[in-house]
Every structure is written in C-alpha cells, then in structure tokens.
C-alpha cells in the first residue's frame, strides 16, 4: 500500500495534527509520502523530512497554494491521488475544506473524521456529535480519509530522512482569492493540542469575569476554552469554543468551570483523560462525566485553587 499524507502547515512550521495523521497512516501500514503544498515552505519541508516513518516528501511551491485555498489544494491533490491507495489529512478546517473536492473529482466517498483504524479499509468515525460510533468499510480503490487528531498519538518528529521531490502545479482556480487572516494571538498553548485546558461557561457571567478563567489557565500553562453559551454571550472568542460546533479536545486534564455540560459540549471534551468540574449546581450533568467535582462558586473555588497550585 502507498499512502499520501497531505500536510497542514502555515508555510513556517507543521501543524501538529499532521503528526497525528501520520500515526493513523502508520497503523494502516505501507509506504508513506507527505505532500507539502505552499509557498516558500522550506522549513516545513525540512521538518517533514525528519518525521518518523516518512519515505518521501513531495513539494509543490506556488503562490496560489500559500493560503490553503481549497480549490487549488483540491486540484493539486486530485492530480496525484490516483497514485495512492490512501490519501489522509487532518480533519481540521484545512482538511475538511479541500478533501471532499478531491472525493468529488475522483468519484470516491470520503471517510470523514476517523478515530480508529480497524484495518486498511475499515475505520471508525463518530456520528451524532460522538453519541454514536460508526464502523464503515470503504470499497473505493483510493480511500480518502480525514483524521481526528486527538484520537491518535503524534509520531516522533525526528528520526526520518525522507527524500524530497518537486511537484509541479499550474491548475490555479481563478474564481477565489485570499484577502486577509485574523488570527487570535495567544502566548498559551494551542487549544487543540494543549495538555491542560481550562474552559468557562455561561456561569462565568461576563467577558470581564472571564479573566478568572484566563488567570487559572496561565498558572497551569493551559489553553483557554469556552462553552458555546459563553461564546454566544460574547464572554470568549469563537475559536475558543469546545463542542460539537467548535473544537474537539482531549487533554490530560480538562477543567469545566461553570459549564453545565450540555450534550453539544460533551461531544467536544468527553475524551479528555481527566475531567474536573466546578459548578454551583450539584445536579449539573457535567458531574456525571467528571472524574473530580467541586460543588461551589467558581469565584471562591478558583482563587483557592490558584493559592494551592
């Protein structure tokens, strides 16, 4: 079998989901090629060459590939996908954006968001926001797969010495162009990959009060998360949202503070190793899935916690 992994990166470094996607590729087994499509992404290529288990790195360098526009990445991947038994990419905004285009062009039914590789043609994927797990077998000759990063442990970033090969790209789609990016800057770890996540919910009460959540996150070197309710009320920006309609996280410790634990939120965090819930309401559903709970007001408990940490 020969597997193509389409790397996600920002032209400067690989995004960690790529390493988890490689882990899924290794379980499928076979010769692994990584595609780096971007512009002046030399440092990403160097990083990709060193990844464990990669035998070749394909490099497509073109201004039209710099910003991950789905039409162009889709055209590029479609042009070579037929050479592989499997094409994998992270089930991130990047992967979700272009992979179905490849599926349409190849007339293949994509398998989205896999959390387990059962065999080379059979995979497990969550449906209904993770409230059910569906095992599907793909009979397509090329299997197109997006991988849920939190479900696979990243491969080693070192140890490999893959060969590099250039890949030409000229099939630029004229109808779309990139204008601007508004990235939320944070000193703290990325929400999707942080070892500890501290999330606040509706009960935090206001945008100003959210500083309490941020303070605890800072103390623990954790990422900040939020429930959909907190985001909708404007307490926290949307890219902090954890849940079915936001990000799926699986840290070592997840602090759910003043979050009741709606099904939609649980879908985004129930795979966390340890869940800690702090809530005034002893009947909040979050306590049903938490490993450790404290019934109390966050404005009492969090400062206490800050002291003993």
């Amino acid at each position: 079998m020969s597997i193509l992994v389409v790397a996600e990166h920002d032209n400067a470094s690989l995004i960690s989901g790529t390493l988890s996607t490689l882990a899924a590729a290794k379980i499928i087994g076979g010769d692994i090629t990584v595609l780096v499509a971007g512009e002046n992404a030399g440092s990403v290529v160097t990083e990709a060459q060193a990844l464990e288990g990669v035998s070749k790195v394909l490099v497509a360098d073109n201004a039209a590939l710099a910003d991950g526009l789905a039409e162009n990445i889709g055209n590029l991947v479609s042009s070579i996908a037929g050479n592989y038994s499997h094409v994998l990419t992270p089930a991130s905004n990047f992967g979700k954006n272009f992979m179905p285009r490849v599926a349409a062009k190849l007339d293949v039914m994509q398998v989205s968001d896999i959390v387990e590789v059962v065999s080379a043609d059979t995979f497990v994927r969550p449906i209904y926001a993770g409230n059910a797990l569906m095992t599907v077998k793909s009979n397509d000759t090329v299997k197109l797969i997006t991988v849920r990063s939190t479900a696979f442990d990243a491969v080693e970033a070192t140890g490999g010495s893959a060969a590099v090969e250039d890949l030409a790209f000229s099939d630029v789609f004229a109808g779309s162009s990139f204008i601007s990016r508004d990235v939320t800057l944070s000193e703290r770890p990325e929400l999707g990959t942080a070892k500890i996540v501290v999330s606040g919910g509706r009960g935090v009460g206001s945008k100003e009060n959210f500083a309490v959540i941020e303070g605890l996150a800072e103390k623990l070197n954790a990422a900040v998360g939020a429930s959909r309710a907190a985001v909708d009320l404007g307490y926290a920006p949307n890219d902090c949202q954890v849940g079915q309609t936001g990000k799926v996280v699986a840290p070592e410790i997840y602090f759910a503070i003043a979050i009741s634990g709606a099904i939609q939120h649980q879908a985004g965090m129930s795979e966390s190793k340890i869940i800690v819930a702090i809530n005034k309401d002893a009947d909040a559903p979050i306590f049903n899935i938490a490993d450790y709970g404290i019934v109390g007001d966050l404005f009492d408990v969090v400062p206490e916690l800050m002291e003993v940490l």
Partner: peptide, 28 residues
Amino acid sequence: APRLEVVSVAAPAERAAGIIVANAAELV
C-alpha cells in the same frame, strides 16, 4: 448506491461519574 458499507453502529463507552471533593486543596 452507497460506497461505504456500514459494518456496525455502537454507543461510545460511557464515562463513569467520579467523586466530589470538598475543596481546591483536596482536588490538587
């Protein structure tokens, strides 16, 4: 005609409820 064959649909493993601790110190 469907391309994917559904082998099975299962409920995810349920997380058991843990314990309530008295305060921050005990939690840590």
